[in-house]
Design a binder for these strands. Structure first.
Lengths: 146, 146
DNA sequence: TTTCATGTAACTTCAAATATTACGAATTAG
DNA sequence: CTAATTCGTAATATTTGAAGTTACATGAAA
């Protein structure tokens, strides 16, 4: 099954944006995210609605981070993206009145709910600032190797 | 995103099979799973490979549970189905050498791995026997209401 | 030996996400 | 003011992977 990599992609874009100070166009971001400018606008538009980035039209326009990197967690990004479905595995809902289906789904729902809670909790504890620091650490290590 | 409901479907089928004692044909199971006989054969074939059910051809043939319901966990079924992808959210892998991507993916991978471990652990603790008992409890409650 | 049921390959259909095209609206520079 | 640039977004096309379907061979039972 194909997986939704928007969270990963958006993080990629945001870290690149954090490195630069100035606005980046949808076109530039699309190139760096291996996708299409329109897709970038749609996705970044969600982050803008959540107050994480700002967009400006016209020459010298583009996208820029406006939030404090320390205050933005991956959970915030997940929420901004519309809380996309976490699991690729789900319940059947063909026969809601079937007692077999009810027993099965009740058991599965519990397990999935707990795992989802754990995941979102973890995402809530990872900030953009930490990822940026992690990137800079890797960058330094990389340069010292060369 | 469309979710893989095979685990739920297969559980549905197995509980129905457990209720009856005798073999059920792919056709019967397909009707009760709202799907196609060939799909049933494909899916149940995986369970047979794992030693959970047996198939027999010819008249009076069909599918039957051969494992002890107390010994089969939902984790076993998950494994038998080929350990399908758990998460609908995944990493980008467009630029493996990009340090930004590495930093992003490392953080995400940790969180997802922990959540997956929790989920599989939970699935490992739920047996078919328990689900069957749960069903019978619901069944009794349902009858006493009527 | 006829009938029933699985085994499986090949092909078709379907759904959902992503990509693309196209053009309008807003902004800046000159 | 005008031309160039960039976002905003609707409409459409493409892609992709799962599920469904057809077709027929294999094997078992009565």
């Amino acid at each position: 099954m194909k997986r939704d990599s928007r969270l990963s992609s958006v993080l990629h874009a945001l870290l690149h944006m954090a490195e630069r100070g100035e606005p980046m166009t949808s076109e530039t971001l699309a190139a760096c995210m291996c996708t299409n400018p329109v897709v970038v606008r749609r996705t970044m538009g969600l982050l803008r609605d959540a107050g994480l980035v700002a967009s400006a039209r016209g020459p010298s326009g583009g996208w820029q981070i406006v939030a404090d990197l320390n205050a933005v967690s991956l959970r915030d990004l997940y929420d901004a993206l519309g809380e996309p479905t976490v699991f690729a595995i789900g319940n059947r809902h063909e026969a809601p009145q079937c007692l077999v289906e009810q027993a099965v789904n009740a058991a599965l729902d519990d397990a999935f709910a707990d795992a989802e809670a754990l995941l979102l909790d973890r995402l809530g504890k990872i900030t953009l600032a930490r990822l940026s620091a992690d990137f800079n650490r890797r960058h330094a290590a990389h340069r010292s190797r060369a």
